[in-house]
């Protein structure tokens, strides 16, 4: 029982548990909070995979940004007083069956794959390599991402503006 193993199982448990909670809890606010937990757990998974930079990015953007946005959206679309957020889900069985089937399909492929070897040695500074890659081979993609962000910004602003 290595540290790695224990750590993995712990993080996995948290991740799975909070994911289930996200989709099952009737209260939408709680769901968002559980999502935050799941996102942090994902970051932990990244750490387990020796990617501290990605862990940081995950926490910053996802757990920080996305959760904030969603909270604001919930506030703007639900009446806080009176009609409490009724979050009944429907057709649980159908959804469960389909989701389970999809999982079974993916797992089937995974089981048929040849078992991979141990993880190789990680040489060098990954973060620096990422940085160099972003302005090197992936420069164009990076720039396009910037364009996408601008477009998304403008789009979101347009949609959310008040009608006057």
């Amino acid at each position: 029982m290595t540290v790695e193993t224990v750590g993995f199982w712990l993080v996995a448990a948290v991740l799975l548990g909070s994911s289930l909670a996200v989709v099952l809890t009737p209260n939408l606010f709680h769901a968002v909070l559980y999502l935050a937990a799941a996102l942090v757990a994902t970051g932990a998974v990244f750490l387990l995979l020796d990617q501290p930079f990605l862990f940081a990015v995950q926490l910053l953007l996802y757990a920080g940004g996305v959760v904030t946005i969603v909270v604001f959206a919930i506030m703007l679309t639900e009446r806080l007083v009176g009609e409490r957020i009724r979050q009944t889900s429907r057709h649980l069985i159908n959804g469960a069956i389909v989701a389970a089937a999809v999982f079974a399909g993916i797992a089937g492929f995974l089981l048929q794959a040849p078992p991979a070897g141990p993880r190789p040695e990680q040489t060098g500074d990954v973060t620096a390599s990422i940085g160099r890659a972003l302005v090197g081979p992936f420069a164009v993609t990076f720039e396009l991402l910037g364009v996408l962000l601008v477009a998304g910004l403008i789009g979101a602003l347009y949609f959310a503006r008040s009608e006057e």
């Binding site: 389909v98 089937a101 999809v102 399909g105 089937g108 492929f109």
Partner: peptide
């Protein structure tokens, strides 16, 4: 989702 399942099969 159904389509994906069919593709799996």
């Amino acid at each position: 989702a159904f389509g994906v399942l069919l593709l799996f099969v």
